[in-house]
């Protein structure tokens, strides 16, 4: 499977997002070892240098860490992962409301719409 990359953001930023998402969604659990750079680069069909950059930037966030001899791992800090999940969810919500507002809906209309959708899905 190749990773979907868009045309706007820098590639390494998109790789960071993708790996972060894999961690938040539990594809890689806390404490898991990540595949080596070359393998990840191959999976994403990107230049290994770009993947390297994405990983070292992610290390700065604390979400992953590297062990000199044995490779890179997902953090053990589940609180940190939960915080990232919350932040991302909040971002999604913001985007969602922005989109609806740009359609010209008022807050009340949006609330009514959400209630409607909740009924139909349950």
């Amino acid at each position: 499977m190749s990773w979907e990359l868009n045309n706007e953001k820098p590639i390494y930023v998109q790789l960071m997002d993708y790996i972060m998402l894999s961690i938040i969604s539990g594809r890689y659990s806390a404490g898991d070892k990540l595949p080596p750079v070359r393998e990840l680069a191959q999976m994403a069909s990107v230049n290994p240098n770009t993947m390297q950059k994405a990983l070292s930037e992610l290390e700065n966030t604390g979400l992953i860490f590297s062990n000199r001899t044995s490779g890179r791992f997902v953090t053990d800090d589940t609180d940190l992962i939960n915080r990232c999940r919350k932040n991302l969810a909040a971002e999604y919500c913001n985007d969602f409301f922005e989109k609806l507002k740009s359609l010209g809906l008022t807050q009340d209309e949006i609330n009514a719409l959400i209630d409607d959708c909740r009924h139909t899905s349950s």
Binding site: N7, E8, K9, P10, I11, Y12, V13, T50, K53
Partner: peptide, 15 residues
Amino acid sequence: SVDEIRKEHNTSVDG
């Protein structure tokens, strides 16, 4: 670098 161009111009190198 590719990412410099993307960052500075908010578009792909192709664009």
